[in-house]
Design a binder for these strands. Structure first.
Length: 509
RNA sequence: GGCCCGUUCGUCUAAGGGUUAGGACACCACCCUUUCACGGUGGUGAUACGAGUUCGAAUCUCGUACGGGCUACCA
């Protein structure tokens, strides 16, 4: 019998969550859902110096907005807590000590100045970044180079120290990545990574292994930037818990910006969002725009993320979350990095806005409308309007332009598009149109249109030359859905009012 | 520099030895619509290079080039 699938997303709360992070969440979530497993969110806050207020909250807000709720987390509870590594601090030291005892790690007493000195000393063109590794560790101050008594004395005197892994020589460290297949490393080239820091906190390397074990994680997914440190984690698994208990790894391809790994800088530079939601850096007060505020709906955001590095092998591109769960497989995740294409991202959102029902769009649209100063008193009208204009909205804010005039008569008219060609015949036409519309019993799009065209033809006018003025009268500018649809939704009184108002403006000056 | 990962239209990708190398976004043209979209039809456009294996290679192997990542008491 195989173990229950348990996966985790392990973010460091240092700022906004960007595209790649959310995609990692998504793939974790899809995998867990697909196999009836648990999805855990564990906060990796072992670096106090990088603590950023609000970042943790932000992560959970994003998950909520996306509809990717964890089964276990700081906020959701669970039997494997605490889910914040800073609160698990005490549990790590014993594992580090165990490694030392068994000869797989050692105490190192080097100060940061000494480390700097070492790097400066051994730095060369051939070796621009010297590592604390098997070639150098015997030249440093650690429990390998000083006597046991001296080590003991230093420890008892509470001398500042770290614990480093003692990477073996000439060993091939290999594992099978679910996406990339066999990957191997020569241990001689690895450095002796710090496992336990001077402040007693573990580094990522120790914490990820210990917590994945304690939380019974069966599959560990993360970005490709972690691949180079995977051998350290493999070694730790081997020493601590047994390689046979290690989760299966998958390293996701990176999401690239125009110049390599996507960064929030790319966003402001190229005009597209990078973070899931707006993020205000509490230190600098710098605001980074998010997909949510830009006008993406969760369905669109999830969909575009899912297809960035994965596809189901068919030509299907539009997937709901449920469909993704059904279709997802780790084997079909690409191994190559994917450059983010904002145009395509918008296309996904557009498809989802078109596909969405009025119900799911309504509250967002209403909020946007009201933010722009439009009061929405009539909910039924809003429903009708959304249905009418959603096909031409790519981003949520597009609804403002496309539908404000339904709720509020235009304040200014684009007279430039009308006046040069305005004449008495047109003036008369609209006077007659008002009369006709006043009398009509059939207030619907088809009747409005046929009456309009009939009057035009009786007066030997081309309907085409009259429709643009009509649009400007109702809308104020050259946009919006079909003009007779607009008149229909606006209703008799309002339509006639707007024609009258505009006629005054067009005929004077 | 070293190590690791990668390489099919501009972008996301399909094709797991035999296809006119398929689709989507973007772009262009036409149709629809005399607002703009939506929609429809068509078009431009790719297997990085060199060897090898094979009757046959985008697909397997090797090399080269290029791209990316990592190289902290950060994750």
């Amino acid at each position: 019998m195989s173990k229950k699938v348990r996966v985790r997303f392990a973010p460091s709360p240092t700022g906004g969550l960007h595209l790649g992070g959310v995609r990692t969440v998504l793939y974790n979530y899809l995998f867990a859902q697909k196999y009836g497993g648990d999805f855990i969110v564990r906060i990796e806050d072992t670096d106090q110096s990088r603590y950023v207020a609000g970042a943790e909250e932000y992560i959970f807000d994003t998950l909520k907005w996306c509809g990717l709720e964890p089964d276990e987390s700081v906020q959701h509870g669970g039997d494997f807590g605490p889910y914040r590594q800073s609160e698990r601090k005490d549990s790590y030291r014993q594992y580090a000590e165990q490694l030392v005892k068994e000869g797989n790690a050692y105490y190192a007493f080097d100060t940061s100045e000494e480390l700097e000195k070492m790097r400066a000393e051994y730095k060369s063109e051939q070796n621009p970044s010297p590592q604390y590794d098997q070639t150098l560790r015997m030249k440093m101050k650690n429990s390998l180079t000083i006597s046991a008594e001296e080590t003991k004395k230093l420890l008892e005197a509470n001398a500042e120290h770290v614990i480093r892994i003692k990477v073996p020589e000439n060993e091939t460290v290999a594992f099978t990545d679910m996406i990339r297949g066999e990957v191997h490393f020569d241990s001689s080239l690895l450095d002796d990574k710090v496992l336990l820091k001077a402040d007693g906190m573990p580094t990522y390397h120790l914490a990820v292994v210990v917590d994945d074990c304690l939380m019974q994680i069966t599959h560990a997914f993360r970005g490709e930037e972690w691949l180079p440190s995977a051998p350290v984690h493999i070694l730790l698994w081997k020493y601590l818990f047994g390689i046979e208990n290690m989760p299966q790894w998958a390293h996701f391809p990176l999401i690239l910006g125009p110049n390599g790994k996507l960064s929030k800088r790319d966003g402001s530079k190229y005009g597209f969002p990078v973070f899931s939601m707006n993020w205000m850096d509490p230190k600098t007060n710098e605001l980074t725009e998010g997909f949510k505020e830009k006008g993406f709906i969760p369905e669109g955001f999830i969909n575009l993320l899912a297809l960035l590095g994965w596809n189901d092998g068919t030509e299907k591109e539009i997937f709901s979350l449920e469909e993704l769960i059904e279709a997802f497989s780790m084997e079909r995740v690409h191994s190559a990095g994917a450059k983010f294409d904002y145009e395509k991202a918008k296309w996904f959102n557009h498809e989802w806005i078109k596909k969405s029902g009025v119900g799911s769009l309504k509250s967002g649209v209403k909020k946007l409308l009201e933010q722009s100063g439009v009061t929405v008193a009539d909910e039924a009208l809003l429903d009708k309007v959304i249905e009418l204009v959603k096909d031409r909205c790519t981003l949520l804010p597009d609804f403002v332009q496309q539908s404000s005039f339904f709720f509020k008569a235009p304040e200014t008219l684009d007279t430039d598009s009308v006046k040069p060609k305005w004449n008495d015949a047109k003036q008369l036409f609209f006077v007659e149109l008002i009369r006709n519309y006043e009398l009509t019993q059939q207030w619907n799009t088809a009747t409005l249109e046929s009456n309009f065209k009939e009057i035009a033809s009786v007066n030997s006018l081309k309907p085409g030359e009259l429709m643009l003025p009509f649009r400007i009268m109702l809308v104020g500018g050259k946009f919006g859905p079909g003009v007779f649809d607009i008149a229909n939704v606006l209703g008799k009184g309002e339509t006639i009012n707007r024609i009258k108002t505009a006629l005054d403006i067009f005929s004077t000056h």
